[in-house]
Design a protein around this nucleic acid. Structure first.
Lengths: 205, 205
DNA sequence: AGTATATGCTAACTGACAGACAACGGCAAA
DNA sequence: TTTGCCGTTGTCTGTCAGTTAGCATATACT
């Protein structure tokens, strides 16, 4: 996992190469980061090399090289246009400023996987878990689930619901809504078919 | 990998040929680079030849020739399946089956727009709106907000929080948490700066 | 308090590089 | 032939970029 400064360094190297066609030297990186010490910059370079994100020709000026990081082609463009910057954490936080070198997140990379699908949630049964009426949940197909996972359970091959699951000792299954006004229900294993477990959730305002 | 001086030399050779139709001699290159020594220039020529960027007719005056450097276009389209199928609505619904004609959703198309960014939420102040500690919210930069929108409000240029907003008649602003254990706060307009309004929210399990 | 990590600085070492210069050989004009 | 231009090769020296190590501070975690 990269630190902020390491990420900023990597981003700058990418941008620099993108713009100039050749990599920056330590001093140029430091200049961008507001660091006067080449030694400090060099430590970041080493860290990025350890993470296998860049390759370094030791001793040479401008000896930094980016490592091809999978998903060829699509990335150069898509990764710029299909990402959202993660600015930070909102808490009792500081002002949100226009910061250049931020972590970014690609929602598709984040959520899209084979075997996943989206459902629109209807009803309030999972409201206490923050899943509201109208929300979209991203599910992953599966046949079994561990305790406490939120799953789509098909009951009697007829009715599908989104609930938290508990596998009981006797083989039966309890489906637990996240709503104080609703009761958990217990079913024999034969009556319940798991169709998927939740891996994500999103909502548009 | 070229050094700065080597790159400058190559660029000058290109420009020179482009302008005059014939390549420069060592002295002319050196003159452009501020070098009086032909020997030094010659070393650059050799380096460029080693890199296969130029060809040299040994011994001849103006014997430099550019090498055609075609960059094979990397047109990897990689039109990935960046979409998730929207299977339907989960309520007291029917079994989830493999349905043919599915609606699909591309999360990036759905959420990614210029001027948007992501924040990780810390704390429980919006818990009743289904925004939990650790959730990610997608914000859109803006300076004003209508009543009842969830916004990032910067208070006294110091502290940023995520709250529901109400513009009062007298010009003051009330920020309303979605947590029964917390109180709305009222601020004079000067103390509050809106930094963005919520447009989406997501969560990974 | 004590430890660990992240960040920044200075200082010194090393090797690559840049430039000057000298010397040699080919070639063409005087 | 001689002279001078030009490319070529090699050496010497100073500078610069990368590297390494040591010291200091701030923050988070035990």
């Amino acid at each position: 996992m990269l630190t902020d400064r390491q990420r900023q360094t990597l981003n700058f190297i990418r941008d620099f190469i993108d713009e100039n066609g050749y990599p920056p030297k330590l001093k140029e990186i430091g200049n961008h980061l507001g660091i006067t010490s080449r030694g400090t910059v060099h430590r970041y370079i080493r860290a990025l090399e350890d993470e296998n994100l860049i390759r370094v020709s030791t001793g040479r000026s401008r000896g930094i090289e980016l490592v091809d990081n999978e998903t060829p082609g699509d990335e150069s463009i898509a990764d710029h246009e299909n990402t959202l910057p993660v600015v930070g954490t909102i808490a009792a936080g500081l002002p949100i400023e226009a910061i250049e070198d931020q972590e970014t997140i690609n929602l598709n990379d984040f959520f899209v996987r084979p075997g996943r699908f989206v459902l629109r949630v209807q009803g309030d049964s999972m409201i206490e878990d923050g899943i509201f009426d109208g929300d979209m949940v991203i599910m992953e197909s599966c046949q079994t689930a561990r305790d406490n996972e939120i799953v789509i359970a098909l009951i009697d091959q007829d009715e599908a619901t989104l609930k938290r699951i508990k596998n009981n000792q006797d083989g039966s299954i309890t489906l637990i809504p996240a709503n104080a006004s609703m009761q958990p229900f217990r079913y024999s294993a034969e009556r319940v078919t798991i169709q998927g477990r939740i891996v994500g959730q999103f909502r548009a305002y």
